[in-house]
Nucleic acid binder design. Structure first.
Lengths: 201, 201
DNA sequence: TTTTGTAAGTAAGGTTTACTCACCTTTTGT
DNA sequence: ACAAAAGGTGAGTAAACCTTACTTACAAAA
């Protein structure tokens, strides 16, 4: 069997592009196979040559977007030195990507999670890489004593990811703009120093 | 027109109960109207007497669960004194509810958000109340100098909600158990004091 | 007591939509 | 050159959601 997530056949590319475009204007459920095919200039049958079903198409489009996103995040974090700088790079790169690429954000945050098949998809595999990256940075930060020794890497990863996603949710849903810089430094500030007024600068 | 979210007619109750039960074993998409009707001992047509469509049924079931949840949260927070205690009460009540009532959690975290109609539903209205409650507690905390004066209530609300939801996501998806106490105190600890090792206890 | 009106419930059909399958055409490896 | 595989077609199917015309029960008014 050929690799599942390749990029080449021309019809396949047109189908994915057509679907991406449609996702910009309406939600997954209200997009029909007929519409995707017509928009791509192919027949309905061809879609099922390349994609197991409609959900599989969704997952593969997400995978494609996420692959680009992940390498951006990896580059940005590699360019930073301290743990906190790396984490801020992740937060701002994520918010920026979600803010600029609403289709990607809507698929990831709103459309895929309801189907069990997603969690077996290659798209979810990339999400796991992404969250593992955060945890590794945190573990590294603990080892280098930049973070408190009793920090739980899994929990901190969840807090950061949750903050990122929830910050974008409203913007994505209601098509609003987001001040990426303000939001990311705000999140990092809360996570770094906390919000409790304990006399510590 | 009668109130949209009432509870009385017998058929209606059976339909909602049937649907809730089915949501315990499979996801929304794979539950059919025929199945719901059969399970409830009514005909398909009756479902459309009480619910605009299948999604509306989902939203109303969520509304019912959320109403109970919200009053629990309100009671718990009212019983606490400090801002931080109130917030911890919200976090632990939320994690506890999601952990105990997986159907409720799955609907809220995975199933509803993909449809635009949800954000006009009475279920979403309750979610707005819930997040407003968090913001009010935060604003109160700032006013009483329990929280740092430059805290952004909207951002902190998003961080807390995001942390709650992301902590539950994996548990809900993969049907795992959650240590509610550890998770909620962990979240509150991060948000209160931060994770950066700056020599401040 | 009859009439009227309304809410609860039924039965069957219509329409849309995701998906399949048999077939044709083009490319490619040997 | 030719078999096999990959790219592509288009008609057809099953099933799910939803509609609509109808019946029954029952309470309030006349």
């Amino acid at each position: 069997m050929k690799p599942v997530c390749k990029t080449s056949p021309p019809g396949r590319i047109k189908i994915m592009a057509s679907f991406s475009t449609l996702m910009g204007t309406k939600d997954f459920q209200s997009i029909t196979i007929a519409e995707i095919a017509k928009n791509a200039g192919v027949t309905e049958g061809l879609i099922y040559k390349y994609f197991k079903d409609k959900k599989d198409l969704l997952h593969q489009v997400l995978h494609q977007h996420f692959a680009g996103f992940l390498s951006l995040v990896q580059d940005r974090t590699a360019a930073e030195n301290t743990c906190m700088e790396k984490l801020e790079a992740i937060v701002s790169a994520s918010l920026e990507s979600y803010n600029q690429n609403r289709v990607f954000a809507r698929i990831l945050l709103l459309e895929v999670r309801n189907s069990p098949a997603y969690f077996d998809s290659c798209a979810y595999a990339m999400v796991k890489k992404y969250s593992r990256l955060i945890r590794e940075i945190v573990c590294d930060g603990i080892a280098k004593k930049e973070l408190k020794p009793d920090t739980d890497p899994f929990l901190l990863q969840k807090v950061i990811l949750g903050a990122i996603e929830h910050t974008c949710l409203k913007q994505v849903i209601f098509e609003r703009e987001l001040d990426v810089q303000a939001a990311s430094s705000g999140i990092i500030n809360i996570v770094s120093y906390g919000v409790k007024n304990n006399g510590c600068h």
